[in-house]
């Protein structure tokens, strides 16, 4: 009941889903697949608060222990629950002007800024990688340099107006990049299938832990 039944449910659902995808046109399986697709999203949606509860637990401990920067944790929780309650009880839909204001004037610009500042960190990481002076790091950086220069007018300017860098960047993107990514993708797919089989058959049970039993 505590472990065997959940594992059995995993197996039954996996088999049902696979059968429903391979034997299309069977009324029972088609209905089951449509239901499972819909139920999957509903179940996932209900789990969304887990992240907020975890955030609350982590920052709650920081506040109760009065650890360094605890005041920021108070502010984080105010923002978290303020936004949540404002959305659910005041705005009530995504087209509310207050809600769009919060998104367009605060969340989206902050998101763009946070992601844009990463460029400085990856720049310094690239510099450190280059200092390693390994052939692999050099290949990575030379490719990255060609990709970057091939996409901006500076690259063409450096070659007196010749589009060689841009053409090289296109070729790298379409040929060796695709080849490397394809190898990774095929490997990842095989790994994913193996993991899915292990989970479905109950060999992999790591997800059953974390409940203290």
């Amino acid at each position: 009941m505590k472990k065997e039944l959940p594992v059995a449910i995993t197996l039954i659902l996996a088999i049902l889903y696979v059968l429903a995808n391979y034997f299309t046109g069977v009324a029972f399986l088609d209905t089951a697949k449509n239901l499972l697709d819909r139920w999957y999203l509903i179940v996932a949606a209900w789990a969304v608060l887990v992240g907020s509860i975890n955030l609350t637990q982590i920052h709650g401990r920081r506040i109760s222990g009065k650890r360094e920067g605890w005041i920021f944790s108070v502010w984080l929780l105010i923002c978290l629950y303020g936004m949540m309650f404002f959305g659910i009880f005041v705005a009530k839909n995504a087209s509310h002007p207050g809600w769009t204001f919060m998104y367009n004037q605060l969340i989206a610009p902050m998101n763009a800024t946070v992601y844009s500042t990463i460029v400085f960190y990856i720049g310094s990481a690239a510099y450190r990688a280059f200092r390693v002076r390994s052939p692999e790091a050099s290949v990575l950086l030379v490719t990255a340099l060609i990709m970057m220069l091939g996409r901006v007018p500076l690259g063409r300017m450096l070659l007196g107006g010749h589009p060689a860098l841009s053409q090289m960047a296109d070729w790298i993107l379409n040929v060796p990049n695709s080849a490397g990514m394809r190898g990774i993708q095929i490997g990842a797919c095989l790994g994913g299938v193996a993991t899915a089989l292990r989970i479905a058959l109950g060999i992999e049970r790591g997800h059953l832990g974390g409940t203290g039993e």
Binding site: K3, I9, Y17, W39, I186, A196
Partner: peptide, 30 residues
């Protein structure tokens, strides 16, 4: 322990999805 039902439900459909739908586009077609 009841929370395992949620996780196993998601993983059951998720692993079925990988076995049924990922194999063709990410392996066979590649």
């Amino acid at each position: 322990w009841l929370s395992r039902y949620t996780i196993c439900f998601q993983l059951g459909i998720g692993s079925g999805y990988v076995l049924a739908k990922d194999f063709k586009p990410f392996f066979v077609d590649q």
